[in-house]
């Protein structure tokens, strides 16, 4: 069970690191928020599943499950609010230069 938990957490860490690299490399708010949503949807999910497996069947596992459900409900709302605010304030999305 511990090994399985470590596998899950390593996979989660991989996605968290990729998301961090993405935030640095991508050019503007819009594309950076894509990278952030990668953290939310898979990085945090795999980390929390790993922690839940490590914790075993207990009240803490139930709490982690509630955190997961809340995460999946709230994250799209936050990402949408950020991007909509950027769009409404008149920011133009970065575009590839056309040759």
């Amino acid at each position: 069970m511990d090994i399985l938990a470590i596998i899950f957490m390593t996979a989660g860490l991989f996605f968290l690191i990729v998301a961090a690299i993405g935030v640095v490399r991508l050019p503007d708010v819009f594309s950076r928020s894509h990278a952030v949503s990668l953290t939310d949807s898979l990085g945090a999910f795999l980390m929390l599943v790993g922690i839940a497996l490590l914790e075993g069947l207990s009240i803490n596992m139930l709490k982690i499950l509630v955190v997961l459900i809340l995460l999946y409900i709230l994250n799209p709302v936050i990402a949408h609010a950020t991007v909509r605010a950027a769009l409404r304030s008149g920011l133009k999305p970065w575009q590839k230069e056309t040759p």
Binding site: H34, S37, L38, S41, L42, P76, V77, H80
Partner: peptide, 15 residues
């Protein structure tokens, strides 16, 4: 629909 699009990495509902 909006939430599903946002939750899928690579697409975000802007408005």
């Amino acid at each position: 629909l909006g939430n599903s699009i946002t939750l899928t990495p690579g697409t975000i509902t802007a408005e």
